[in-house]
């Protein structure tokens, strides 16, 4: 395995090392298989289920969490306040309930039912 210059034939040494490769010791094989059995036993157990989030938490997630809910709450509060105590440039909503929608009579004194009778 040495050439004429006395150089070491590494390839020959590598071949020898491959032929001399270590077999798996029996005791090591048993330990590896014992580990495998232990790990596999863990696979058989159902994973611990996390508690499902409550309805309120699911709504929060859909709306974008606490920051979004905070803005929503503020908007709702503002709307209620405007309705209860509107600014001066807005009409009082309580007065609008019974007031006429307009002071202009678009039918000119006629009733709608009499208009239909004229069609014959």
């Amino acid at each position: 395995m040495a050439d004429k210059n006395g150089h070491i034939d590494l390839d020959g040494l590598f071949d020898a090392a491959r032929r001399d490769s270590a077999a798996l010791p029996e005791a090591l094989s048993e330990r590896i298989l014992a580990d495998a059995a232990q790990v596999q036993a863990g696979f058989a157990e159902p994973p611990a289920r996390a508690p499902s989030p409550g309805l309120w938490r699911q709504v929060m997630v859909l709306l974008g969490g606490w920051p979004a809910l905070g803005g929503l709450a503020a908007a709702c509060a503002a709307g209620v306040w405007i309705g209860v105590s509107p600014p001066a440039f807005l009409p009082d909503p309580a007065g609008l309930v019974s007031a006429a929608q307009s002071e202009v009579d678009v039918l000119g004194g006629y009733s709608l039912s009499s208009l239909y009778l004229e069609d014959g």
Partner: peptide
């Protein structure tokens, strides 16, 4: 798998 891979990784 132990028979196939064990000797290689040990060696």
């Amino acid at each position: 798998l132990t028979a196939r891979l064990g000797p290689r990784v040990f060696s």
